[in-house]
């Protein structure tokens, strides 16, 4: 029988993991945080944001999709990789229309929190100021594509958790955007306000109506501690990420 555990090295630290785990999962279990945006515990990895890029035996790989194996040497918290991640986050910030000061997700937003964690004050890239559609046709949920990062969480959760298939991607290249399973927009779909698909959106793209600013600014999730701080905080204890997908 094949041995069920593997040992690999990440940031000079030797880590034991279960065969079949991804580098991201195994690292997290060992208290090593790898920044991520599209990935969410319990979902099939998407591999789209690339923020989790690490070096595996010298080669760039997405930690959320790459399986652990014996003798891997993984670099994660290096200046080079932090620089790459900064570039990716800045790309996401200029690709959409992000005005944090007017966004009700501010403080709860994973993109914003990652940007702060990576010391991004203002992106070095020019803003692309795209024209994006807002869909307010649903009575309880707002879809503001200006802030969508195409992470596919809502697509996967609606399909695999809510069992509904409300979302999908339409178009390609820079025109790729979030589509809805209805000719009449979100209001014509069978999305309901308590669907998990709405909860998991990492940014202010899918929002429940009439719930804005219930938590005051200053007391929001990432006002309390930076993103990723929960990993390794109490090594070994189940980590308190706010993922509803556990």
């Amino acid at each position: 029988m094949q041995n069920d555990t593997v040992t690999f090295v990440i940031d000079q630290k030797e880590v034991r993991a279960r065969r079949g785990q991804t580098i991201l999962e195994a690292a997290e279990q060992a208290g090593v945080y790898i920044p991520r945006l599209c990935h969410l515990k319990g979902l099939t990895p998407h591999g789209s944001c690339r923020v989790c890029t690490v070096r595996v035996n010298g080669r760039y790989q997405a930690a959320c999709t790459y399986p652990v194996a014996d003798d891997l040497v993984v670099e994660n918290d290096t200046e080079e990789l932090r620089t790459l991640r900064r570039d990716l986050l800045e790309m996401l910030l200029v690709e959409g229309n992000h005005f944090c000061m007017f966004c009700e997700k501010s403080g709860h937003c994973e993109l914003q929190a990652l940007a702060y964690r990576h010391s991004i004050a203002a992106p070095k890239y020019p803003h692309l100021w795209p024209r994006r559609e807002v869909d307010a046709s649903h009575p309880d949920v707002l879809l503001d594509r200006n802030r969508c990062v195409l992470c596919g969480r809502c697509v996967r959760v609606s399909r695999d958790v809510d069992g509904k298939n409300v979302f999908g991607f339409v178009g390609r290249g820079p025109h790729r955007h979030l589509g809805v399973n209805s000719r009449r927009g979100l209001g014509g779909s069978d999305l309901s306000a308590d669907d998990q698909a709405v909860t998991v959106c990492p940014v202010g793209c899918l929002l429940r109506k009439r719930t804005a600013f219930q938590v005051p600014v200053g007391q929001r999730r990432f006002d309390r501690q930076p993103i990723g701080a929960e990993v390794g905080a109490g090594a070994g204890s189940p980590q308190p990420s706010e993922s509803p997908m556990q």
């Binding site: 944001c49 990716l88 790309m91 020019p126 195409l150 390609r172 290249g173 820079p174 790729r176």
Partner: peptide, 18 residues
């Protein structure tokens, strides 16, 4: 490349435009 990118991942979707 911009036209033909599938648009799935950030660097290719945004980076080539930049």
């Amino acid at each position: 490349f911009i036209d033909e990118s599938c648009g799935h991942c950030t660097p290719c979707r945004v980076g080539n435009v930049l």
